[in-house]
Design a binder for these strands. Sequence first.
DNA 1: AATGAATGAGAGTTCATTCAT
DNA 2: AATGAATGAACTCTCATTCAT
Lengths: 182, 182, 182, 182
Amino acid sequence: MTDRRARRHDPGRRDRLIDAARRVIAERGVAGTTHREIARAADVPLGSTTYHFASLDEVLAEAFGRHAAAAADVFDERLGAATDRDSAIEAVIALIRDDLIGSPNDLVMAVELYVAAARNPALRAVTQAWMQRSRDALERHFDPTTARELDALIEGLVLHSVLSTDPMTPEQIRHAVERYLR
Amino acid sequence: MTDRRARRHDPGRRDRLIDAARRVIAERGVAGTTHREIARAADVPLGSTTYHFASLDEVLAEAFGRHAAAAADVFDERLGAATDRDSAIEAVIALIRDDLIGSPNDLVMAVELYVAAARNPALRAVTQAWMQRSRDALERHFDPTTARELDALIEGLVLHSVLSTDPMTPEQIRHAVERYLR
Amino acid sequence: MTDRRARRHDPGRRDRLIDAARRVIAERGVAGTTHREIARAADVPLGSTTYHFASLDEVLAEAFGRHAAAAADVFDERLGAATDRDSAIEAVIALIRDDLIGSPNDLVMAVELYVAAARNPALRAVTQAWMQRSRDALERHFDPTTARELDALIEGLVLHSVLSTDPMTPEQIRHAVERYLR
Amino acid sequence: MTDRRARRHDPGRRDRLIDAARRVIAERGVAGTTHREIARAADVPLGSTTYHFASLDEVLAEAFGRHAAAAADVFDERLGAATDRDSAIEAVIALIRDDLIGSPNDLVMAVELYVAAARNPALRAVTQAWMQRSRDALERHFDPTTARELDALIEGLVLHSVLSTDPMTPEQIRHAVERYLR
DNA sequence: AATGAATGAGAGTTCATTCAT
DNA sequence: AATGAATGAACTCTCATTCAT
């Protein structure tokens, strides 16, 4: 562990706090995300969190914003690499199977965000932007109606798969997606 | 509002507390569901909530359990009334459109449950049972694979519709479901 | 476990509650002795404790009184069986070694009583009576001055022996008592 | 009493809280020692007690520790001032008569500690250390066996004297000690 | 005669936020 | 610029006691 005093000038600290907040949300949920917990996760003093952010809500908004951006990047990459409809379908399947179901933390973050957004307007904007980026990525290869329906299907499949004690197999994922798109 | 002193003998209070908890969860989220808030909603003294339940978690589990049962009943009724595949499809459409999207509180409750279940094993069982009942209802008319995929699709459609500033129209819902089932 | 309903008429219940209270005090201390805990230990409903006793203090007083009487009985028996000064000395040694140090619960009860008596006059009387009976028993064989000093020595030896991680051996007990009395 | 607002910066508050806790334990017993009572005695807000100590047990341990150290200091001083066996005997008599019986609060603290230690391992260590220091002080003038026995005798004499409605006179104390040591 | 339900006071503890340094 | 101390509100939970049945 680095000497605390070495950090007195620490330009990246705000960033580190946001990342620490992401980790805390994923591990303990929004309900368990406190200034103290974030400070501990970032290994900075308590006063630092309130110094860099006006309120806990601000930290949450930044943390969720950054998480959504990262998740949307993955979406973009998968679909940006596809060249035709067939490879786009494969990209969707891989996305669900490898990126989304494979890291259940992401689903946790998404659901935490939905819940938090229900009572916090600032987070509603984050949710909207995230959904919009997903849909835009899908519209590179599918018409708007299909993109929207597909986006919903993806969310439903991931949700049920992660929450279930009996998660869907890769074949089942493929089956569901192909049934919809072919 | 009845005189408080008249309540010294009050059978059914436990039930009323559970219903009060459902309302509080819907209005303020699990994070805002405290003994005090529940007591206020049920118009009973604070001590009453801790007398009837060993812990707040127990109240949450009962409240979510009751909510899930009610939601599953609606599911059952809609699909139980269908007589053939075509009317089953119409039942699914009506369910999404009128019952699920129409009462956004239900979606809020579902998402709150998912989040709470992530950190509370007792709630995981509630989630499982709820999902199972939905799937069973769908299997009255569709094969198991279809039922499972359809269940996920329904969840995704409702989620995206309710969370979006631009909710899906009834026609879009119909389109998505028919595309899947016909 | 007997059927609860069979107890509806239960003349010995008050007694059983007092004994239950003794056990609870020994196990959990006065601080942990509540109506609920006593009722549980006696396997009777909560309301029963407040029905049979006007207050928790009353239960404590009865419990300590009964305990003190039992402890004094042991004292009496040991010294009553002695026939001369020598056998009285042996009786004191056996008393300390086998009866007092051997059942550390008794010391716990005594110390709990001292603490409780500091704030509860009713218990002060119990303490006084207990001390008096000990001294009376010793005076069967020793002059009053010796009896009083010896009583204090016994208490000190037991206290230090039970509280210490390195308790006194039987030989050390004998040595201390004989040094005093021979 | 100083204006509360003047206290926003208050070094040494932790210390003051520990001393306040000592006073509260002596006056109300461990059972009556609550965060709120300590805060009141120290004239600080409730939140301050939980800011400075992780738990109430921690406050108790610190308070008893400090009390034991002070009591042991008195022991040390009395016996340190003695130069030979005779003056050591006089020191013991003065200690019992003037320091121990003279301040019954000390006995209360000791007994409270014994009771609390029965259920709190952290306090057991405090008890042990205290006993050890007493014995060490006595061993400056007496052999280990005598020191140990004498330590127990002192405790017993003080206990019976303070608890009794008919406390021992200075002459009786002297008689008991001399009988043992000469 | 006996009891489960009810209640109000108070417990320990956490925490967002403020502020003096 | 940065932080540890400070604070007040709110939290969950326990409990002696009261009371309607």
